[in-house]
Amino acid sequence: MPVNVLVAFDGSPLSKRALTYTIETFPDARITSIYVINPTDSVIDVEAGGLPVAKEWYENAKEEATRIHTTATDLAAERNTELDTVTEVGRPAQAILEYADDHDVDQIVMGSHGRSGIDRALLGSVSETVTRRARIPVTIIS
């Protein structure tokens, strides 16, 4: 059984399922929820709103991370589970993989994506990259 499990958590329904799955499947593991602030998102904000938006982007992203961590912590508390949370900045797949490597993670759990119909058969780009490149087991929740 894994001792140290990393759950990619962005507040989406699939990430909530992934966290719930992790708590139920690995009750004795240390569970860490990771949220990645993606700087690429700032480009869209700058294009839409200019330089003042660029200055505020990172502060807004940190506030969003805090809200998302609160959601994860509350979900874990409802199941009488303690949860560590971490925020990283970078490309999501790369940040998840680097964190796992640097912190002796035994298992990664993450949602696939929110698509429906025929596209559901394919993984999202982050989950696909993590699955292909991880040196440890990855569980994808759909």
Rank of each mutant, 00 (worst) to 15 (best):
A29G: 07
I44F: 04
V126D: 03
R30G: 02
V86E: 15
V36D: 07
A100I: 06
G50I: 08
D45E: 12
T71I: 07
V130P: 05
A65F: 10
E78W: 00
G124Q: 07
S116Q: 15
A54C: 06
G114P: 06
V109N: 13
A61V: 00
I108E: 04
D106E: 12
S116V: 10
T129S: 11
I31P: 11
A65W: 10
P52C: 06
S33H: 08
L83E: 03
A76I: 11
V130A: 05
T81S: 11
D41G: 14
A61Y: 01
D28A: 10
G111H: 12
S125V: 00
D28E: 15
E63Q: 14
H113Q: 11
D74L: 04
S112R: 13
A76R: 10
T73L: 11
G50T: 06
T85G: 09
E128T: 00
R67K: 15
I44Q: 09
M110K: 12
G50L: 04
T71N: 05
V126P: 03
V53T: 08
G114N: 10
Y35F: 12
H69Q: 15
H103F: 03
D45L: 12
L97I: 06
A121R: 06
D104P: 02
T81P: 01
T87G: 12
A76G: 03
N80P: 01
A48G: 09
L75M: 11
R115K: 15
E64K: 14
T131R: 11
P92W: 03
R91F: 06
V36S: 06
V126N: 08
K62E: 14
E56M: 13
L122Q: 08
L123T: 03
R67T: 11
S33W: 05
A76M: 10
S125P: 07
D28Q: 12
P27S: 05
A48D: 10
D84S: 05
N60D: 14
N80Y: 07
E98W: 04
G50Q: 07
G124V: 02
V43Q: 06
G49F: 15
A93G: 15
T66C: 00
I34V: 09
P27G: 05
I34Y: 02
N60K: 15
G111I: 01
T70Q: 15
E78Y: 05
I44K: 11
T71E: 15
L123N: 09
G90H: 04
